[in-house]
Design a protein around this nucleic acid. Structure first.
Lengths: 194, 194, 194, 194
DNA sequence: GATGAATGAGATTTCATTCAT
DNA sequence: AATGAATGAAATCTCATTCAT
């Protein structure tokens, strides 16, 4: 069973690399198998379909993000600080797992059935929204702001920064990353404040 | 000649509808031809490939957006006001041409060769950046802000709002659209101010 | 009408060049039109189909060869000398019209309906056979030889030499050409003698 | 593994039949698959492309011919006798594998990249040439003859006889075949002698 | 669990031919 | 006669999925 899980893991990790490199549609199932060092058919032993592989990758990635956001949410800090922490978490993903970011940035809006329907994605957005709403109740965030809209704008800004890094259009040295975190905090999040 | 251009137009318009409905990859060239009311082969008379059709659509759409942004840029207003106008232009596209927005939102980062490489897209981003930089020179925008980063954040927020509308996750009545414009102005753009 | 025939000529000449360069199947009708400097549709004004163009080229080429052979046949010389003259005529085509030879060598046995069914081709072979038979009657050629077989062997040897030149596998300076003529005369034709 | 090679064999054999019947260009890959009794895609499992199938057929056929010629070459007989044996081998192919001959005769000069570039073909011609050269050294063949030219003439004559049989223009009863062998020996090869 | 040969539907693209002007 | 846009059938090739071992 441990061995079993290991193969599944290998396939999943390979999928991230392959999808990141070639894009979902231009990646063949065989590429994933080869990159994972397993037999062609084994992919179908662990996953229903190629699509299911992508979904599993997404689910896992967003699951981790969701867990991190949830932890932030449970912390006793004021909402603006929580948003800064989320910003940091999201942006640091680029350093921690660039292939995953490449994949998310490229395929997030694709694949009809995946479209944000994955529970984990919806949950993450909901969590962001709750943090904003909580800030409004505690008086740190402007009450007139539409919490959901704020959550989406924040996420959009973050994703676009990641996109800039993926495309090589924005600089991404550690200093640049830190600067980006500050920029989000000092402009967007600052704009939320009451 | 007029007739010639007319067919090309029909194909391009049909492509927007079809791609918006089914997504680029799941659309067949035959669908475009049928929707345009022309023969299969005519698509290939006017375009090199299916990909070239998508690129032509993009180029045209971003060309229009770029023209609008350029006009705003040439206006004699202060930078923050210009950014508000751009916001308005981008967000109003949803009402004016929802299929086009659906297409842009879904396929924009896809298609390896299209990726931001299209001159028009790069130009639009550059124009946004210039407006921010100009605001810094005229003293209306915080000098410490990274102009490029600001441009990307702004665009990211706008695109994410459009995405929310496309996915039916954000409300989009005229009032909601106006509220979104205000929200961007009062939070993100306000955060740029000095 | 002169102008008319001129266009037909242009198309036919262009066809030889294009077919020689690209081969029949890989040549497009548009290529011929462009090379001839006429409009696409005009090809179909003068010829029933792409295939008919090839047939016309063949018919003309073999018609010329046939005329030359017939002239040789009518000359009052002994059969072996006549065969030597035919050899000379066939092999000199390479210098005179290399594109035509390229085309003949590449496409002669292909194209199902053309297969030696063209009267001119059959006629040329028949003329060769008659020369051999005549030689047998006049006593210059071995009576035990199968005249038809001899005609085919001779033509085969000639075509293969042309093929060697087309493929660049046999040398083709004027001296080489003369040597080839001699070789055919001194081996094959000499082998026919009684 | 045996089963694997079996399918490949089936496809190759079917290809010979189908190409012989319809000609390369008018044969569809599906026809080959159907004739071989395998699924469409399997052809592409074993071969890169339709062209690669043809090349494999050629390579194999010429490989066999080459092996036979090489064996003749290694025999200790005088060159003229060796040439007679080669003649016999080539002409007997018509009886042994008429489909293969049909294919070779029709498509040999086709396909730009195949043109005599296939090593096996070049090798076969080279072997013929070596036999002639060897005959010149041993004094059985005229020293003034161009060995390469002689090899090409011989092969041309043989191929044309095969062509005559394929096209039904030359008679091909066993007696006719034997007569053809003799004709080649007594005219062409005899012409080589010193 | 693991393998990879086998399947076959489906999509893009080509291009000979037609036809309105 | 001349033009070239328009048509649409057909063919190659791809690749997700299945399945026998």
């Amino acid at each position: 069973m441990a061995a079993t899980e290991e193969k599944r893991r290998q396939i999943l990790d390979a999928a991230v690399r392959v999808f990141a490199r070639t894009g979902y549609h231009d990646s063949r199932v065989g590429d994933i198998a080869k990159d994972a060092g397993v037999a062609y058919g084994l992919v179908y032993h662990y996953f229903e379909s190629k699509d299911a592989v992508l979904e599993a990758v997404f689910r896992e990635a967003w699951g981790r993000l969701l867990a991190a956001i949830n932890e932030v949410e449970r912390s006793q800090q004021p909402a603006p600080e929580q948003l800064r922490l989320v910003t940091k978490i999201v942006l640091r993903t680029w350093r921690d797992d660039p292939d995953l970011v490449r994949l998310l940035v490229r395929e997030i809006t694709r694949s009809p059935h995946l479209q944000r329907e994955i529970d984990e994605i919806a949950e993450a957005f909901a969590a962001l929204e709750r943090i904003v709403a909580h800030g409004q109740r505690e008086g740190t965030i402007r009450a007139t702001l539409d919490a959901r809209l704020a959550a989406w704008m924040l996420y959009g800004a973050l994703e676009e920064i990641l996109t800039g890094w993926v495309l090589g259009q924005l600089r991404d040295t550690p200093d640049d990353v830190a600067a980006a975190e500050r920029a989000v905090a000092e402009t967007l999040i600052a704009g939320f404040l009451s």
